[in-house]
């Protein structure tokens, strides 16, 4: 009825009308050239995403990283655990020896830094993806139930979230991990997920609360739809976007958390190969041989950057209003 007062005040996206003269009475014609092809909101988001250079930068990086994590053998023939002391301690990088074992030089124990960087990718990616999946499933479920049912469910969940939120993430995971003598990848994943689910739960809770108040949810209830249908057909698809964004961005954060913990000696430990462990090992040699730290740290930053950039691009694509 009235023009929107915000923004441009345009009625965009409405179909052009070239109604033929058949319509009297209801004033309508079947021949309105309707809107173009079916365009779902997810489709629109994908369209937005496709047109962002940053998305492609991060996507290419991530595909590369995932391939490295899955098939490290494709990228180097050297054995990352093979310490050959004849390789001289801390040989400097030979930057022209592309993809050779001595490309990035050797570390304190005479191991190929290039091989270690390649093999270390798997641990980081596994921790990042593993924590994100667990956190999204658990936090998402808890947040959804709290948001949808409200009342005492919400009261309990919200208090629980508050308590967990009060624990410092890193300090908390250090305390938890300290209780384990053998710290495999899954232990680190479990420890980080145990402390990390609250963010997703909060985000999910609030977007579910918004979505459940929408008119289309009332319409479904008026039709007699059951809770399951309302939750999974109407509420969840409309509440998912913020969770996806937060999950993607925090994936990077979990990777750096793992590296931090490993650096402090509380995360992964030898014989697992991890950038964090290598950074830790390099700290004594940094003065004379900065390359020992530079390469694992660089890879870590690159990975975290790739995930955060992807999260940013996804957020912009899902919600054009935030731009």
């Amino acid at each position: 009825m009235s023009e929107p007062t915000t923004g441009t005040g345009l009625a965009l996206g409405g179909p052009a009308s070239h109604a033929d003269a058949a319509a009297v009475g209801t004033g309508l014609s079947k021949k309105d050239t309707g809107p173009g092809k079916p365009r779902s909101l997810w489709g629109d988001a994908w369209y937005e995403l496709r047109h962002r250079p940053l998305f492609w930068v991060s996507a290419v990086l991530l595909v590369l990283l995932l391939t490295i994590a899955a098939f490290p053998g494709l990228f180097t023939g050297a054995d990352p655990r093979d310490g050959d002391l004849t390789n001289h301690f801390l040989t400097k990088p030979e930057l022209t020896h592309f993809f050779q074992a001595d490309w990035f030089g050797y570390d304190v124990q005479g191991r190929s830094i290039y091989a270690r960087v390649i093999y270390g990718t798997r641990a980081s990616i596994m921790v990042g993806v593993g924590v994100t999946v667990m956190v999204t499933l658990f936090g998402g479920l808890v947040g959804m139930l709290a948001g949808y049912f409200g009342g005492w469910v919400d009261a309990i969940v919200s208090r629980l979230v508050d308590i967990f939120f009060g624990l410092p993430f890193l300090l908390g995971s250090m305390v938890v991990l300290n209780a384990f003598t053998e710290r495999k990848v899954y232990v680190v994943i479990a420890a980080l997920a145990f402390l990390g689910w609250t963010t997703i739960a909060r985000v999910m809770r609030s977007s579910v609360i918004t979505a459940k108040q929408a008119d289309y949810v009332t319409a479904a209830r008026a039709l007699g739809a059951g809770t399951t249908r309302i939750l999974f057909r109407h509420v969840l698809p409309n509440a998912l976007a913020p969770t996806i964004v937060v999950a993607t961005i925090s994936l990077g954060a979990y990777i750096s958390a793992e590296a931090t913990l490993s650096y402090l000696g509380l995360g992964l430990a030898d014989p697992t190969i991890s950038w964090g462990i290598d950074i830790s090992a390099a700290k004594d040699a940094i003065r004379d041989n900065p390359h020992v730290m530079l390469f694992p740290a660089g890879m870590l930053s690159l990975t975290v950057f790739a995930f955060i950039t992807l999260g940013d691009a996804v957020r912009d694509a899902l919600d054009p209003k935030l731009r």
Partner: peptide
Amino acid sequence: TSLNPRMTVGDIIGEPYEIH
């Protein structure tokens, strides 16, 4: 706001049949 933006028109009008 009364139509679910993530469902097609066919799914929206057909939903009553799925419920009944």
